[in-house]
Design a protein around this nucleic acid. Structure first.
Lengths: 331, 331
DNA sequence: TATTTATGGCGACTATTTACGACGTTTCTC
DNA sequence: GAGAAACGTCGTAAATAGTCGCCATAAATA
């Protein structure tokens, strides 16, 4: 493999000049530049990334830590992050935290040890303190789906409370008054916030929140199944169910269909996230849009702006939007 | 940050000895080893990845190129690759090819320029010739979902023809004789092979393949919708539809349900891939299992064995399996 | 002539790997 | 029992391929 030395020899210039051409920062005459470029082309020269990183202490890589890679949720986010960073010739290194504090910390250390310039984190179990401390170290971090007041500048998040409110409000507007809720895990921030929104909507019309009509799931399809079975076992009446994500709706609806119920005629459902499949299941899901791909893109842009000094606009907080389809009807 | 030099000073040994302790390959006396380890701990020493890569010409990184990151298909694969490589302290760099030859080649070059030790490729548009040439270069590659005879050793693939055969055979066994087919794009290898299997199954029972009952989709939900509308417009009778993947089944079924049809009573469906959602849509899909996560894992193990010299077992070819659920019934 | 611009040259620097060789101890052979 | 070979252990120094900054110098411009 040709080195920068070979290029300088062939072009008849010094090492410094070759470096100047590559990093296009200082003045080089057009003629010299062309000579160097020609030499590079002739030799098929590629700068050695390892040496560049060593000398500049910059790897042009960003570590992305997510809870999981399978499932419908993180793919779109990763896609946007990859695209935005790739367009600026940076690469992304992935790691998985499995929503477990020890594994998440381990993953952060792993990414750091690999020399990432920055980290994009979608973590659930790591404590605020750890993240605050981490953000003060030399490696910048961006948090997706999480708000920590002390480091709010590097947080990209959705107004989950509002989303939870919108879901329930929609059902109330359709005349529903007995509304069950299948929640996400109570240790996850977004699950708590969505439930808060649900409660606020109920309170707004003077309905008191009934814990017996609430089941705590884990965001997976199976817990939608469990939740539905639990709700039916309560011997309480309800005309609608809000689920804290679309996957649990899908599990919940499958239980109803197996019992021969007609959806949405006998029971209305509202989901959350608007995952791609929400449009193709039957009935098509009424759900709250979670602009996860936009947040991924924004996290990448944040780094481009703050770390790599590109001139781009960034936003921190995103608003949910209700997507009305066919799974919830007027009572 | 402490360097290897600091460690050697504190431990009172040479640089080489510290390096030997880290790489535990050559003989170091237990006493010396302990001294070095103690010095490392005291200094909180972390080897500099960039310098390691420069000196050893090995980055411990593997580039993974897939067609897309969103969608239900690649997540499980990436998850397995990440887990297997991570367990051996290697990291994965991702890139997206968008099923386009120019972009795929660009992505390969990109990953190569980033100093990957090896590449895992799930590419559709790149030519066999390019891949054969690439495999002869110094960077090893592994191909997922593709078979090229000349470099069969580094191909990890599914017997797609057999899967296509199984899908149609299942319907034939249930008594169906008029079977429509919604295919994947005719330029994709797996789509062609699956269709071949379909034809073989038909031929086996003496049914001639009718092109009018076949629609070419693009593997996305919407083309399942288009395919179904096309089939209904043909004024031909059919009692079952095979789709070349589950996403198209989902689109196709949604058309039928909107027309008020009962599925599977009026029309049977068989899909392909067994994506997670296949279990939760209604009716639950009868489909052909595509062990994509196992293939991902195998690709990683292949590298562990052939590149990083770990002692593991690898398999190249995977067999599909029919998963019988509720979307296809006896006629 | 003074000032700016372009370029060369040199060396410091980055943190590690690795080939080679040195040194001392053990073991084997005659 | 002595000399030689083998071996384990460890250090030295070269190599890795760039970046970066300083200074000197030459050419172009004002």
């Amino acid at each position: 493999m040709a080195t920068i030395y070979d290029v300088s020899q062939l072009a008849g210039v010094s090492l410094a000049t070759v470096s100047r051409v590559m990093n296009k920062n200082t003045n080089v005459s057009e003629k010299t530049k062309q000579k160097v470029l020609a030499a590079m082309a002739e030799l098929g020269y590629r700068p050695n990334t390892f040496a560049q990183s060593l000398a500049s202490n910059c790897s042009n890589s960003v570590g992305v830590l997510v809870s999981q890679l399978d499932g419908p949720y993180y793919g779109p986010m990763m896609a946007e992050i990859e695209a935005a960073l790739r367009a600026d010739n940076r690469h992304v290194i992935i790691a998985v935290g499995h929503s477990d504090a020890a594994q998440e910390i381990d993953s952060v250390e792993f990414l750091l040890s690999k020399g990432c310039d920055a980290l994009i984190l979608d973590v659930e179990a790591i404590s605020d303190e750890y993240l605050i401390k981490l953000s003060k170290s030399s490696t910048p971090i961006v948090l997706i789906n999480r708000y920590i007041a002390e480091i709010s500048d590097c947080c990209i998040y959705l107004n989950n409370e509002l989303g939870g409110y919108m879901a329930t409000r929609h059902l109330l507007d359709l005349g529903h008054r007995e509304i069950a809720y299948i929640s996400g895990p109570s240790k996850k921030h977004d699950a708590i916030e969505r439930l808060e929104g649900h409660k606020r909507a109920l309170a707004e019309v003077g309905i008191s929140y009934d814990p017996a009509l609430c089941f705590e799931g884990d965001y997976k399809e199976d817990s939608g199944v469990d939740g539905m079975n639990y709700l039916f076992s309560q011997n309480k009446t309800f005309t609608a169910v809000v689920c804290a994500n679309d996957q649990m709706v899908s599990g919940a609806i499958s239980v109803c269909l197996e019992r021969g119920m007609k959806i949405p005629q006998e029971l209305s459902f509202v989901g959350y996230d608007n995952i791609p499949f929400a449009r193709y299941v039957s009935p098509k899901l009424t759900t709250v849009n979670n602009p996860i791909h936009e947040m991924g893109k924004m996290a990448a842009l944040w780094l481009l702006k703050n770390l790599y000094k590109k001139d781009v606009e960034v936003a921190n907080v995103f608003e949910p939007e209700l997507v009305v389809r066919n799974s919830a009807i007027r009572i």
